[in-house]
Write a protein that binds this DNA or RNA. Structure first.
Lengths: 182, 182
DNA sequence: GTCTATAAGATGATAGAC
DNA sequence: GTCTATCATCTTATAGAC
């Protein structure tokens, strides 16, 4: 069965947010890309705020699932962090997109309160996961939370900068160096 | 003498870009804040693209001056990097703003080509300055450019994330740790 | 669930008076 | 250099037919 319209809307909107940001896409953009009318989008998501919240809820669930999968698939700290890095690199490679929450963080001042909450929750999720991964290492067990924050911030910033150069390798080099210096 | 209107426009616009981004501010916002009409803004900067280019040109010049000043005022690598860090922390502290180029980097896909060029030039400027600072260190002279990229990316990302928590201390802790681990 | 039609307001931008 | 007036277009959002 084909993806329900609701999911198609979320898919298209997510890509729009990741490439242009919250203020720079419209219902008309979504409608045009899917091939339906603006009113139909409003039927599924009456307001832009509701659309953004639904987007973030799904994104957090998906991302959380990916993190659990990494924990399952990889046993060592190094392998887990390498897989985490790939999560970001793949998004950047696919049409020069940013992490959706990195983009929403830039749009933060214009975001409805409920969406702001979701953005912080995403960062909390990532920090918690990274902290648990880093805290499990044989050596360098010290201050896993502080080191987790460095990884998250550096990855978000590296995506931002590397995208302006259309250079995924630049992202990976920065990310590798950050992980090596932890 | 009071600041010329042109400069007042650039001042106000810069703050708007740093807090909301390129797509989320309008000529009406600038006009309202200065207390003149939209048409007057268009007299000084006919199009939004021209306004953005003027903004970036001035920003790059100012930022470049600040970097030269740091080099002049501080002799050691550590003191220079600490002063560089303060440049970013001060912007974040003042009304939760981001580095203007961090914001423009998020808005990159919607930017006129001339502005895109300026954004990359800003990153080039910073990378070059950081590379020269890091290359001058007694120890750890190796790969100054790669380490410069880590600093720039981490600082941009740390601003982005820390802003969502309204937490300047969080930015500073991440920045300090990045500098310590170089 | 999708459509047409429409609303009310914002947007970037221009013409021309003062 | 600033103003009023105006423009065409886009924006989010709603009402109601099919």
């Amino acid at each position: 069965m084909p993806a329900a319209t609701r999911d198609r809307i979320l898919d298209v909107t997510q890509r729009l947010v990741q490439s242009r940001g919250f203020s720079a896409f419209s219902y008309a953009d979504i409608a045009a890309e899917i091939g339906i009318r603006k009113a139909s989008i409003h039927h599924h998501f009456p307001t832009k705020a509701e659309l953004a919240v639904a987007l973030m809820t799904r994104y957090r669930a998906t991302f959380g699932g990916a993190l659990m999968q990494i924990t399952r698939d990889h046993a060592s700290v190094g392998a887990r962090l390498a897989a985490y890095k790939q999560l970001f690199a793949n998004v950047l490679r696919d049409d020069h997109r940013l992490c959706m929450c990195g983009m929403f963080a830039a749009d933060y001042e214009t975001l409805p309160p409920e969406v702001r909450h979701e953005v912080r929750a995403f960062f909390d999720d990532n920090e918690a996961w990274l902290t648990s991964v880093l805290g499990a290492g044989k050596k360098g067990r010290a201050q896993p939370r502080a080191r987790a924050r460095v990884v998250l911030a550096a990855f978000e910033g590296a995506m931002l900068v590397a995208r302006t150069y259309r250079d995924v390798a630049m992202f990976e080099e920065i990310a590798d160096r950050v992980l090596a210096n932890l």
